[in-house]
Design a protein around this nucleic acid. Structure first.
Lengths: 155, 155
DNA sequence: ATAAATATGTTAGTGGTGCATACAAAATTT
DNA sequence: AAATTTTGTATGCACCACTAACATATTTAT
């Protein structure tokens, strides 16, 4: 009864080391679920939207940049960009300086999508914020940042 | 320069509502990646290990219970249990009280797996803890808990 | 300048969530 | 007794994440 925690009837304890990991995963999956509900009519995922926002704010960026920023494999980014391009939300172009690179840019349809997504982002934000004070909210973001920011140092 | 944050060269700002969601996702995926490295020789995932721990601490539990606890769909739990059973780590049995239910229990191979996983859990825990003070660590877990615990109230 | 190493994008394949849908059997509620 | 709910199951779809291998282009080392 010291370090055991209860979830919906079942006991999950003993390995307290495991607990942060578990909360992290449950929190993320709950958020993802809420995202899906709010954005269901747009048919876009969290990752896809993030990629689009990055492209919108960094026009002409590359798949490699996105991969580095979001800590995703080249092949993974490939799939995401393919889906977005297939729906006509972004376009690939030729880079002038580096002929290996391809530039990524938002299309008109993509701008419309981002516009439609904007209100919904607000709704998701509210859903998250309503649980926390302003201080807690920033605290949480800062703590989470430490986990993925110092990725190289830990390995 | 007010609410913009920079990640590895690309700018991600403007939508600050989006930012907690992003940190949450990046933190979770970084943890998952670290998990994969540490547990690579065991060939088990975070979710699978969590399911096994729940079964180990709640012998004879059901798929429905696990789904409720981890907030997963019935079909999703099905897949996870199938994989674990296919590897002989758990067994399904007949429930005495309720003939719809199937009991879930750990096999000997499963116990061995959990034993091997135990040390590695410590390593993952250390990887997480080294970023935080003890107070921050507990704070983070508590804040994350609010996101997934009050799932019904938010909807 | 040539060779070696690195960076980028691509394709193909594998595995693991996560969900919707539909079905069947059993239990519970009305 | 009938309707509803619960549980497990099967199928199929979409997305993410990675490995491996390949080709091209750029950068670095010799």
């Amino acid at each position: 009864m010291k370090d055991a925690e209860t979830f919906a009837g079942l006991t999950a304890g003993r390995t307290l080391d495991h607990v942060l990991d578990l909360h992290l995963r449950l929190a993320q999956s709950a958020t993802q679920r809420r995202f899906s509900e709010i954005f269901s009519d747009l048919g876009i995922t969290q990752t896809q939207l993030t990629a689009m926002l990055l492209i919108a704010e960094n026009p002409g960026t590359s798949q490699a940049d996105i991969g580095r920023t979001l800590q995703m494999d080249r092949a993974t980014v490939m799939g995401i960009i393919n889906r977005l391009e297939g729906r006509g939300l972004i376009v690939r172009g030729q880079s002038a300086e580096d002929r290996r690179r391809q530039t990524l840019d938002i299309t008109e349809a993509g701008v419309a999508m981002l516009s439609a997504a904007h209100e919904r982002s607000g709704e998701l934000g509210r859903w998250l914020r309503e649980r926390f004070s302003e201080a807690e909210f920033h605290m949480l973001a800062a703590l989470l940042k430490r986990i993925h920011e110092v990725d190289i140092g830990g390995v």
